[in-house]
């Protein structure tokens, strides 16, 4: 199989929702959620995809995973058309949502792993080796047989990420993976994601409001607001070269500035990458 050059390619991706209003006379109102996003994410890159609530992040991710059809534009994810080849695509995607669990609450993580292996159709031998590797690297041994409801949030999230890597996904979607997790467990999760990105070459697509996650995990930052990309640069370039009103700024300040200003002003007027 030819190695993939780009994990994600989108061209002018746009999504408009029809919202019906009124009880008797149902007037349709169009709401533009995503306004022409064009992106190229090389395979193996680690990208922070951030924006304020309602910026269009979820809609974009849902379009990239084939759950939503765009109103216009095209996308290719792992070389597949997300809307026509969704069932093939989801076999190659791993997803972790900080506020939703894929593990069965009353069962130990081991049982959920076994179930995921069946759902993804992982051959038994492969699964045994992969599980052993993940248990060792994510240090799950101590609580692999403990019901998930009895685990700490940090332990649960480690098990969640390990579960999402069982089927060797090429693209890992992380949505607020460290939300509510204590500072040590948070750093531990970030290190594990970085390690996996480096060693297995898995492309990471991270959404988080925690700049620590972004700084630790991402090579590149894409900021989206009002459905448009307002910043797309490497993390090092953003941190080192971005000036706000002529002064260098922390990543958190830059992001806050973009979130606040982009509503009314075009990007180049808000901050000036120097």
């Amino acid at each position: 199989m030819k190695p993939l050059k780009n994990a994600v390619e989108t061209d002018n991706l746009r999504k408009v929702f029809e919202i019906k209003q009124g009880l008797l006379r149902r007037n349709a109102k169009s709401v533009v959620a995503v306004e022409g996003i064009s992106l190229t994410v090389p395979a193996g890159q680690s990208v922070a995809f951030i924006g304020p609530n309602g910026a269009g992040k979820s809609t974009t991710i849902k379009m990239l995973t084939g759950i939503l059809k765009p109103s216009s534009g095209t996308a290719s994810v792992l070389g597949l058309d997300p809307w026509k080849q969704r069932s093939k695509l989801v076999r190659q995607i791993g997803a972790v949502f900080g506020q939703r669990s894929q593990l069965w609450l009353h069962l130990p993580p081991s049982d959920s792993f076994d179930l995921l292996a069946e759902i993804y159709g992982i051959p038994k031998n492969d699964y045994r080796k992969r599980k052993a590797l993940l248990v060792e690297r994510f240090d799950l041994g101590r609580f692999l047989s403990t019901p998930v409801r009895k685990l700490s949030l940090g332990e649960r999230m480690r098990a969640e990420i390990a579960a999402s890597l069982l089927h060797r996904p090429q693209l890992l979607l992380l949505d607020e993976p460290t939300i509510g997790v204590d500072v040590i467990a948070r750093q531990n999760l970030r290190d594990l994601v970085c390690e996996w990105n480096r060693e297995e070459g898995v492309t990471v697509f991270l959404t988080s409001h925690d700049t620590g996650d972004i700084e630790s995990v991402a090579d590149r930052v894409i900021v989206i607001n009002h459905g448009r990309v307002v910043l797309d640069d490497s993390l090092s370039s953003v941190s080192e070269n971005t000036l706000i009103e002529g002064k260098t700024a922390e990543l958190e300040e830059i992001i806050a500035h973009l979130f606040n200003s982009a509503a009314s002003l075009p990007m180049q007027n808000c901050i000036s990458p120097g």
């Binding site: 069965w104 009353h106 069962l107 179930l115 069946e118």
Partner: peptide, 17 residues
Amino acid sequence: RQIWAVARVAARSNLAY
């Protein structure tokens, strides 16, 4: 195979209640 696997896990999970 998927139906059997999900049903088995759901049955086991239900025994927790």
